[in-house]
């Protein structure tokens, strides 16, 4: 099949939207943290923990949405840990973030081994099923690609709008953005920078965990080690690519996912089969770096990103 032909198949775009969904959750989460002034490198580990927690909850008998809630709760706990160390105590966001990733990943693997000591292949759950939205799913090409996804995918795209509205149209959003731009001004208004930043990190970490849960509860139906495989780091690149704006970050995620879906299909063509598969697997990472290089020049980095705020210090 020709590459151009692939671009006009519904299954290709359906795959792109599906691949984009976990990235959108986690990118929104990271974006909220960074907008408030905190770089959250715990993202990779928090996604692992969410992937396991949500799946494990469903495997133990809860409903799917309860599972999503459990994943979010676990993510928020790691967010609480991260923000306690980085916000009031002002510790290095790099070191704490990497520490949280290590802690979340290793404790997830520990819990997995304890919960399922005997299994050779991980058990499956009944994951979220595609839901065809009436009428809309009948539109040619667009219907099967966009409107026949799982509920969790719809939620991801709805959240983009919600996060955008809250950030730009509400006092809360203004406070979050100000905490990342000019925390002293926020404090002068009588608001607590600490509370705003911690809240942002906790909510953001919850979303990252839901992004991880998407992998085990919607994209696949079981939990594997190394499942997240650098997606968290890619989301950090996507935040930069999207200039810290939810809509642009979503476009970035879809573009990225489309490229990922394309490389999988090109691999299966006669030309693609002659290229080592590792080249294709490298592409997402190379693309992320290129995106960073292109966007960094005109990036509107939140002015107080990674700058701890200590009241009384001038």
């Amino acid at each position: 099949m020709d590459i151009i032909d692939i671009l006009f198949t519904a299954s290709f775009w359906a795959a792109a939207i599906r691949i984009a969904s976990p990235l959108i959750f986690a990118t929104l989460g990271e974006l909220i943290c960074e907008r408030a002034g905190v770089l959250n490198l715990g993202i990779e580990g928090i996604m692992v923990s969410g992937a396991f927690a949500g799946w494990m909850a469903v495997y133990s008998g809860t409903g799917l949405w309860v599972g999503v809630g459990v994943a979010m709760g676990v993510g928020m706990l790691f967010g609480l840990l991260h923000s306690t160390l980085t916000v009031p105590f002002g510790l290095s966001q790099h070191v704490v973030g990497l520490g949280v990733t290590l802690l979340a990943t290793s404790s997830t693997y520990y819990a997995y081994r304890l919960a399922l000591p005997e299994v050779t292949s991980p058990p499956k759950i009944v994951a979220f099923q595609p839901y065809e939205i009436p009428l809309l799913s009948d539109i040619p090409l667009l219907g099967p690609a966009v409107f026949s996804q799982t509920p969790l995918t719809y939620l991801a795209f709805v959240l983009v709008a919600v996060v955008g509205l809250v950030l730009y149209r509400t006092p809360l959003g203004l406070a979050v953005r100000a905490a990342g731009e000019n925390p002293a001004a926020v404090a002068a208004q009588g608001l607590s920078v600490t509370a705003i930043r911690m809240g942002a990190v906790i909510i953001g970490s919850g979303l990252m965990a839901v992004g991880g849960a998407f992998l085990t509860m919607s994209a696949f139906d079981s939990f594997f080690f190394e499942m997240v495989n650098g997606r968290g780091w890619i989301c950090i690149a996507l935040v930069v690519f999207g200039s810290w704006r939810p809509g642009k970050a979503m476009l970035g995620a879809v573009l990225f996912a489309a490229f990922d879906a394309l490389q999988i299909r090109v691999q299966q063509t006669s030309i693609g089969a002659q290229v080592p598969y590792q080249i294709f697997l490298m592409m997402p990472y190379i693309l992320s770096i290129l995106a960073l290089v292109v966007m960094s020049r005109r990036a509107e980095v939140p002015a107080a990103l990674m700058v701890p705020f200590n009241k009384g210090e001038r």
């Binding site: 650098g230 780091w233 930069v240 190379i286 992320s288 770096i289 960073l292 290089v293």
Partner: peptide, 13 residues
């Protein structure tokens, strides 16, 4: 001005 955290991490992969 590209942040080295992300680039060095991605280089690992």
């Amino acid at each position: 001005g590209v942040d080295e955290v992300v680039t060095t991490l991605l280089f690992n992969f």
